[in-house]
Amino acid sequence: MSDPTFLPLNLKNVGLDIGEKTCLSDISFSIENSGITVIMGSNGSGKTLLLKLCAGLLTPSHGSINWQELPQPPQITLVPPHAVLLNRTVIDNIQLPLSYHRRANIIERSRQALEWAGISHIGKQVATTLSTGQQQLVALARAWALEPNILLLDELTANLDPTRRQEIDMLIQQLSESCKIFISTHSIQQAKKLASDILLLDDGKLRIHSVAESFFDSAEFKRFSEI
């Protein structure tokens, strides 16, 4: 895996307008630690948009993100809530991006990725015919194989049963040892389990950026969990 040393992420007064609607406004934070940053907030608070901004899929209407200013931006991978897989076998889905990136030992790497995610037995199945949980595991294995510096996970386990969720949480924890992870979730339980720090969004604004332990004792968290 890549160097676990995390390139700091600085957002300065970032805002995003879509049409005439302001979806995100005045978001500023700086994250310098590795580990897992959990983004929380109710539906429509702007979690997905923030992840897409960090991924470079959207350009901020205002403000700046330091990654965009770098001559060599970090390798970022975003896994959406519903895994987007090609209508090919699981192994093809993992090998294809590796081959386009001209990585060495593609076959070995993809085999390791399947083993890591515990899905070696479905390697030859067509990815789009799998269950939602299995598809998410394939997406995670594909991300793992690409060795990103930063992994963005958008409500990855939202549609999964508790057993599968636990399985994926364990994989995320393993991944966090080798790359920086940002994950958006509605699950307080998952946030408590994974987070090293928390970003709480509300109506397109950043309400809190806090270390996980102090966040869960705060009055803001109590208010949020009541909602």
Binding site: L57, T77, L78, P80, V84, L86, P97, Y100, H101, L146
Partner: peptide
Amino acid sequence: LRLNEQLHMLGFK
């Protein structure tokens, strides 16, 4: 619509 963002994220040219 389904693939665009993901292909971009996976680094495809």
